[in-house]
Amino acid sequence: MKLINSKQQFVLSAIVVAVSLGGCASPSSEWDFGNSVRTMVASQKYVPPGQEPPAIPTMDGARAAGAVERNRTAAPAPQRIYEGMGGAEL
């Protein structure tokens, strides 16, 4: 006497596979990636109110292009070595 026929066995195995794969697909883990590290770093820093560091100055594209062009065209400054500097003796 057979307890489960082939159709019921197929349905049961399909349910087991679906439940197994459902445990692997967790969309919430992708959204929270790195939050634990950011939270830990933020908790280790204390900045009193009103004493936040100033913004870091940035360079725009025109200023960077000008600096690169000056480095390409201008003659380099002469190197000077002083006595006792880096072990160089004159």
Rank of each mutant, 00 (worst) to 15 (best):
R63M: 02
G23I: 13
R63Q: 06
Q44D: 08
K45L: 15
K7Y: 01
V68L: 09
K7G: 09
S36I: 02
K2P: 11
S29N: 12
R80S: 11
G61M: 00
G23E: 00
R38W: 05
L12A: 12
P57E: 05
R70S: 08
V11F: 08
R72T: 04
M59V: 15
T39V: 11
Y82H: 08
A64Y: 03
E69G: 01
A77V: 11
S29P: 00
I56W: 00
T58C: 01
M1P: 12
M85T: 09
R72G: 02
R80K: 15
P53D: 05
G66A: 08
R72D: 03
P76V: 10
P76A: 14
S20L: 14
S13P: 01
S28A: 15
P27K: 02
V37K: 13
I81M: 13
G61Q: 04
I4S: 07
P27S: 08
M40W: 07
G50Q: 04
G50K: 10
L21K: 05
A42Y: 04
A67N: 08
Q44V: 04
V17Y: 03
G84T: 00
Y82C: 04
P57G: 06
Y82L: 13
N71C: 10
E69T: 13
V11P: 01
L3P: 14
E83Q: 14
V16I: 14
G23R: 00
A18Q: 05
R63A: 07
L12D: 05
A64G: 00
E52I: 02
R80Q: 12
V68A: 04
S26I: 11
M1W: 03
A88V: 07
A25W: 06
R70T: 01
P76R: 09
S43N: 15
R63P: 03
P57M: 03
D32N: 10
I4R: 11
S6E: 11
Q9R: 14
F10A: 14
S20C: 11
S20Y: 03
E83M: 09
S29C: 05
Y46D: 09
T73P: 00
S29Q: 15
A55S: 14
P57K: 07
D32E: 02
V11M: 06
R72M: 08
Q79T: 13
D32F: 08
K7R: 11
K2Q: 09
G86D: 13
